[in-house]
Amino acid sequence: MNLEAQIQTPQPRTPAWAMLRTLGGIAMISGLLVALVYQFTLPIIAENQRVLTEQAVFRVLPGAVGKRDFVITADGALSPAGEGVDGALVYGAYDQDGGLVGVAITGSALGYAGPVNVMFAYDPECACITASKVLQSNETPGFGDKLDFDPAFLKNFEALDARLNDGGDALANEIVTVKHGTKTQSWEIDGISGATISSKAMGRAANNAAQRAVPAIARDLAVLTQQN
């Protein structure tokens, strides 16, 4: 394009209203589409979320067929989840007769590559953790993902001591991960050699989960076992 051509056909000025009209119009179409899709997918997503949690709960607590959600309130009590109550969630799992199988509690701790979120099964009768399932982690494949597969490591969580102290406000013994092969106490977790950081994170997650949930569960066991 040479100079003459440019002079002969000057660029027409775009009026401001045209720009406003276009941007406004596109924003409206956009808003409409997003709102429609949101409305449509909301129940499906909620249902997915529920199924996912339920699957995890039933996996750590075999034998359970029903699940009810509870919330640990600010003053350390347990109340059924619903509108207007917020706090950390715990899940009561029930068998066919409505008897309490156990409680699923969640904890999280910083691992080798970001947070490790774990669900633990807590059995109020023996006051111990009976199973674990990693919900989310970015730990290195081949090392950190052993947390969920290594049979020797999973054995730690078959009867992990989570008794309360005399005051009833914290665990009698903090749950800790110890070096591989040095586990002596029932509240210790035998680490995986080669994945020390990940197994320590798992120990902290268990401790966090138990320290927060166990006092509330012990206090309001009646709320959990109550049939509805």
């Binding site: 775009t14 045209a18 720009m19 276009t22 941007l23 596109i26 924003a27 179409i29 956009s30 589409l33 997003v34 899709v37 949101y38 997918t41 499906i44 997503i45 997915n48």
Partner: peptide, 27 residues
């Protein structure tokens, strides 16, 4: 779409569909 606001328009349009895909995958 006027030339002056075309990039903004494209981004809004793309972002809309990305949000839709985001919800769809969650579903």
């Amino acid at each position: 779409i006027p030339k002056q606001v075309r990039i903004a328009s494209y981004i809004v349009i793309i972002a809309t569909f990305v949000t839709i895909v985001d919800y769809a995958i969650q579903a």
